[in-house]
Amino acid sequence: MILSSIRRIAITSEGPTLENAVDPRFGRAGGFVVVDLESMATSYVDNDSSQVLAQGAGIQAAENIANAGVQVLLTGQVGPKAWTALQATGVRVAQGIEPMTVGEAIARFKAGGFAFSDAPVR
């Protein structure tokens, strides 16, 4: 992977800070911590708009990710429809995140500890 082309990444999270636990869900994630890798500044994208949907949460979450202007998403697993939607945005996805904090996930990502997926979880 070419890390230099990646400036902002999003991590599915149970809360807004680096100390919060990662959320393995994508569509129904609590929210997304967005990190600027250079400055390490964080911002939080609430995922309420997906959680209130009876269906299509993954697609809505993909729209939220697209609007956040990130190049990479770290999460537990992405379903087939959300995957199709994310593919359209060009956001690269790493799945299979284990229980850890958002800060730990970022450190692991920077150390090359995540592989990008080439398929959704079916």
Partner: peptide, 17 residues
């Protein structure tokens, strides 16, 4: 029902939804 989603410059249709 998110059967149609506008993702950037692509309109995606999910007929299952």
């Amino acid at each position: 029902f998110k059967a149609i989603s506008l993702m950037g410059a692509q309109l995606l249709v999910f007929p299952d939804m």
